[in-house]
Amino acid sequence: MIEAHCLTKRYGSKTAVEDLSFTVRPGIVTGFLGPNGAGKSTTMRLILGLDAPTAGHVTVNGRPYAMHEAPLREVGAMLEARAIHTGRTAYHHLLALAATTGIPRQRVNEVIDLVGLREVASKRAGGFSLGMGQRLGIASALLGDPATVILDEPVNGLDPEGIRWIRNLLKSLAGEGRTVFVSSHLMSEMALTAEHLVVIGRGRLIADTSVEEFTRSAARTVVRVRCPDIDRLKGLLAGPDVTLTACAPYTLEVVGLTTDQIGYTAADHGLTLLELSPQRISLEEAFMELTRDAVEYRSTAAGEPVAARSAS
């Protein structure tokens, strides 16, 4: 369980995370989503106490991370920057980390086998490929058999086999009742692995919702309509929950009405339709739309000339 309350982090004049509150629950995979530079890594550093928040606080399993007596037992983390001394072998890297909480050698060998690094365990980590580095990072994260697992962009640099392995690993960790918090900038990846989503943009919370809910709201259908008398059709379709966008001559994109409703309305008023086609918005597009909105919202809030805008 991770609970963030009104987290704010500023580096000089730059605000990386602003007033961020969310809860990550055990037993499910929670995706932490946002475009590059949204503040995902910063938030993870705040959770682990690597950086101190400017305001607000965050607890892991009920306490600030640093207050736990056996921190590796509480949280296993892999941050985006590879946290490995390039001159040390994978085995010794894990052994040194394990020693801090008295984790036995046997467990070190166990996680090496688990992530599939047996053959290169005695090689220096500096020569590892990106994918091998990720696997070693995941081995470090699992070393203490932690109740909470935090992984920053774990699929980066992995081959398809590795990506599938991560997906299964995350699900099985959550299935064992652990809290799993995984960041990504790829909506499609999260749609496959996560059950819950925390979405941020420019350091602010945009959505804290289940993947199911997000998919349902995002996968609303857009209907494309082409009609010679488009202005009249526009008047007939307009309504409180309906969005109409002119996208080409005589062509509208309608959100909020089904193809049936549009077809009957047109027939009732004797209008000829040249095209009536439903188009699905992909999750990725929905995600981009969501984060773009947040960016716009933010620049207005930061003191843009709002009056000039509403006048135009």
């Binding site: 682990l48 106490g49 640093a66 921190p71 590796l72 983390a77 941050l79 920057a81 040390r88």
Partner: peptide
């Protein structure tokens, strides 16, 4: 050696005090 390689993050995660 730890700061230049990022190892310091792993170290401080293991010994957060």
């Amino acid at each position: 050696g730890e700061y230049s390689t990022g190892m310091i993050h792993a170290t401080l995660t293991a010994v957060p005090r």
